[in-house]
Simulated assay, not measured.
Amino acid sequence: LERGPNEEASSQLTSMAELRRDIEEAYMLVEHGQLPGAVELLGRAIEKCPWDPSLHETRAECYIQMGEYYKAISDIRPTTSLRSDNRPAFYKMSDLYYKLGEAEESLIQIRECLKLDPDDKQCQPHYKKVKKLVKQLNAAQEAKVAGQYDECLNKAKQFMKTEPNVEFYQLKGQSYLCHCYGKGGNLQDALMHCNRLLSREPENVEALIDRAEVYLASEKWDEAINDFQKATNTDEHNRRAQDGLNRAQKLLKQSKKRDYYKILGVKRTARKKEILKAYRKLAAKWHPDKYEGDNKPMAEKKFIDIAAAKEVLTDKEKRQKFDNGEDPLDPEQQQQGGGGPFWHEGFNPFGGGGFKFKFNFN
């Protein structure tokens, strides 16, 4: 400009003056808690000065206070290159990922800090905590997939204890407790944890399906159908929800007919040993050859139902069919499915000719 008029130089001087005003005003807005306005001004400044780490750091702090953690991370990340040995930046990114529930990514970032200084007083304890949590999370997931439900419950409780203050991990723990208590047959505790989770996340599809499964095991058909329907409405492509809805509807229809569990007086979660015990007790009472009452036809009908229940519930394949809403001893259903002919009550424990059947408790 001293040599003479220069439009480019004049334009840059004007731009610099505007930039200074934007930065000063942005910091003033930050002090007064007017964060959206500060973010807007800092954005304009960063477009002109992308290599100034302090601008990124200030905007990142605004985003953190606004709860926009991913945007904060996007601002912190370039400062790891713009400042040498920027361990605080790696720690902050790790902490934010941790709060977002991305424990694996949190572990990656905190390891970057320790590469710069293995004994960093801030990063070292955080690393130990995140590493422990990741191990427990992975163990819970592996146990869940493997069907090791007691181990699943144990690991879920462990990581909930490791991190009691971050909501994500508490809700994650509730999801494991909801699923694994249900699969393990503890329906009361399963329902309690499913309800806790769904009170915070009412559209959590997996939790809706897990609670529906608990309702099915408790023979609450309408409640199960309602949850499966909600899950299907939320995620229409979820196969587990669709299959569950179909099964629940079949079980509701089936409940109005013959229920083998009720006939033997056992829960749907009963093991084979319990089923056989119930069968032996009832068979001893109602077998027509041993029945001492006057109503032999009624005793015969009772025993037919008892024997049919034992036939289905002690056979793994038949029981699975029944649990899916299909009666394997129903001639109409079997003919529709290509099965063979059955006696009109499903099957005949007495054989083809009267009461020559030898009573057997096995």
Score class of each variant (00 low, 15 high):
Glu61Leu: 11
Val145Ser: 09
Gly147Glu: 15
Cys62Tyr: 12
Trp221Val: 01
Leu153Val: 00
Glu31Tyr: 06
Thr162Glu: 15
Glu219Ala: 07
Gln333Tyr: 03
Leu276Ala: 01
Lys144Gln: 13
Gln242Cys: 03
Tyr215Pro: 02
Gly338His: 12
Leu264Val: 08
Pro125Gln: 02
Ile108Gly: 01
Leu245Ala: 03
Lys318Cys: 03
Val312Leu: 14
Met192Tyr: 08
Lys48Leu: 15
Lys262Ile: 04
Pro297His: 02
His287Thr: 03
Leu251Asp: 03
Val312Lys: 07
Gly340Glu: 15
Ala207Ile: 09
Glu311Thr: 08
Asp210His: 06
Thr58Cys: 11
Pro349Leu: 03
Asp330Gln: 04
Gly293Thr: 02
Leu252Lys: 10
Gly325Asn: 10
Lys48Met: 15
Glu274Met: 04
Asp95Trp: 14
Met298Leu: 08
Phe357Trp: 10
Ala284Ser: 11
Ser84Thr: 07
Leu187Trp: 11
Arg59Asp: 07
Lys277His: 07
Ala72Ser: 13
Glu167Ile: 02
Gln249Ser: 09
Val312Met: 13
Leu55Asp: 04
Tyr261Phe: 11
Gln141Asp: 14
Leu197Asn: 07
Gln174Trp: 12
Thr269Glu: 09
Lys356Leu: 13
Arg268Ser: 07
Cys49Ile: 14
Leu329Pro: 14
Pro341His: 02
Lys318Thr: 01
Gly351His: 06
Val214Met: 03
Tyr169Asp: 05
Arg239Pro: 03
Pro5Glu: 05
His126Tyr: 11
Gln65Asn: 08
Phe159Gly: 01
His126Met: 13
Ser218Tyr: 08
Asn138Tyr: 12
Gly184Thr: 08
Ile225Ser: 01
Glu236Arg: 09
His193Met: 02
Ala60Lys: 14
Thr234Gln: 12
Glu8Gly: 04
His32Asp: 13
Glu236Cys: 06
Tyr63Val: 00
Glu25Tyr: 07
Pro297Ala: 00
Asp150Gln: 10
Trp221Lys: 01
Asp243His: 08
Arg247Val: 09
His193Gln: 13
Asn348Tyr: 05
Phe159His: 07
Leu35Val: 00
Ala26Val: 07
Arg271Trp: 10
Gln333Phe: 01
Arg240Pro: 01
Ala72Ile: 10
Phe228Val: 04
Leu245Asn: 07
Asn238Ala: 02
Leu82Glu: 10
Gly346Tyr: 09
Gly101Asn: 06
Leu19Phe: 10
Gly346Lys: 09
Pro88Thr: 00
Glu201Gly: 01
Met28Phe: 06
Tyr69Asp: 09
Asp315Leu: 02
Glu213His: 00
Gln335Thr: 00
Asp119Val: 00
Gly67Ser: 11
Leu191Lys: 08
Glu112Gln: 13
Gln320Lys: 15
Ala72Pro: 15
Lys71His: 09
Leu245Tyr: 07
Leu100Val: 04
Gln109Tyr: 11
Lys161Leu: 08
Tyr63Thr: 00
Ile108Met: 13
Glu223Trp: 06
Lys129Cys: 04
Lys128Ile: 06
Phe342Lys: 13
Glu317Arg: 13
Thr232Cys: 06
Asn348Arg: 04
Leu276Tyr: 08
Lys144Arg: 11
Ala60Thr: 06
Glu25Lys: 11
Asn186Glu: 15
Pro202Trp: 05
Glu151Met: 11
Gly37Trp: 06
Glu213Asn: 05
Lys121Trp: 08
Leu251His: 04
Thr79Gly: 01
Lys267Ile: 00
Lys157Thr: 07
